Computed example of a mutant assay.
Amino acid sequence: MKINTLLFDLDGTLINTNDLIIASFTHTLGQYYPEKYSREDIIGFIGEPLVESFASVDEERAEEMVEVYRKHNVENHDLLVTEYEGVFETIKTLQENGFKLAIVTSKMRNTVEMGLKLTNLDQFFDVVVTVDDVENPKPNPEQLNKAMEQLGSSPEQAMMVGDSQFDIQAGKNAGVKTAAVSWSIKGRDFIEKQNPDYLLENMADLLDILGVK
């Protein structure tokens, strides 16, 4: 069956929030554990729900740390977020060619909407499934299944596109094709080892994979 549905992660895939995420983690961890966590440690947290990241640091104060992170993240959002090369044009082309598009992200809805609006990508996505909408975020397939249900699609028709191991694992768990982006902050070698079906050098590579002229 032909792919007609694309499920996209947001951060690190469509929009470059790496500087913002690292700055927000650095700010928060520096407040509670000065000089204990390196940039490499922080990169290891990227892609999983915030509460899980901070629970691994300090289970008792995890919720409190999440609030500190989110305040910093929202206040600095528009200063530090940019769009990856080729993303806008590719998403626009996919929509014009009748593909069903959804965002599937571990972020909360308010910051998802901020990022989509800032990069003008909001016009292309009628379905957005955030961490607020499910009991079990990625790598559990619940978010992907919810997006496919809202789009009227099946796993045979869908592909998950993301930058972290959680995206690729969620895609495999949902029984959909997977595409990883080579610009993942976790590194090309790391993301290749997750064995995605496709590795994208530029978002426009999707058009070739899907046979879009």
Rank of each mutant, 00 (worst) to 15 (best):
V127M: 07
P139H: 09
E113R: 08
L80M: 15
V129S: 05
T105M: 03
E135M: 14
D133Q: 09
N110D: 13
V131C: 14
F124Y: 15
V131Q: 13
N110V: 12
L151S: 02
F99S: 06
L151P: 01
E85V: 13
M114F: 05
L116C: 08
L151D: 01
D78I: 05
E85C: 12
Q150G: 00
V87E: 02
Q150P: 00
K117I: 10
Q123T: 10
K107N: 14
G115M: 06
K117H: 11
P155S: 12
E135H: 12
K146R: 12
Q95P: 00
L121A: 07
N97C: 10
K100F: 10
T82W: 03
Q157W: 06
K138F: 09
G98L: 11
D126Q: 15
E83D: 00
P139T: 05
D122S: 10
Q150R: 13
R109I: 02
E113F: 10
V128W: 00
D132N: 15
L80E: 04
V131A: 15
E156W: 05
V87I: 12
K146E: 09
E89G: 08
L79A: 14
I91D: 00
N145L: 15
N136I: 08
K92D: 06
K107C: 11
P137L: 10
V128E: 02
D122C: 01
V112I: 14
E135F: 12
T130K: 01
G98M: 10
T105L: 04
N145Y: 13
E89F: 10
M108T: 05
F124Q: 03
M148P: 02
F88D: 00
F125P: 03
L121F: 08
L144T: 01
V128G: 01
P155C: 13
S106K: 03
N140C: 11
Q150N: 05
K107I: 03
D122T: 03
Q157A: 14
V134M: 09
K92Q: 13
L80R: 14
L94H: 07
V104D: 01
I91P: 01
V112T: 15
E142S: 12
G115L: 06
L116A: 10
G115R: 03
N136A: 13
L101N: 02
P137N: 12
T90V: 11
Y84Q: 08
G115V: 07
I103Q: 02
V127R: 04
E96K: 15
V127P: 06
F125L: 04
F125H: 02
V104R: 01
L80H: 06
T111A: 07
M114G: 02
V128L: 04
K146W: 03
A102C: 12
A102R: 08
N136P: 00
Y84K: 09
L101K: 08
T93R: 06
K107S: 13
V131M: 08
S153M: 11
P137K: 12
E85T: 14
Q150A: 14
Y84N: 06
V112Q: 01
N97D: 07
L118K: 15
A147Y: 09
P137Y: 09
E149L: 13
N145C: 12
K100I: 03
S154I: 12
L79N: 14
G115I: 06
E156H: 11
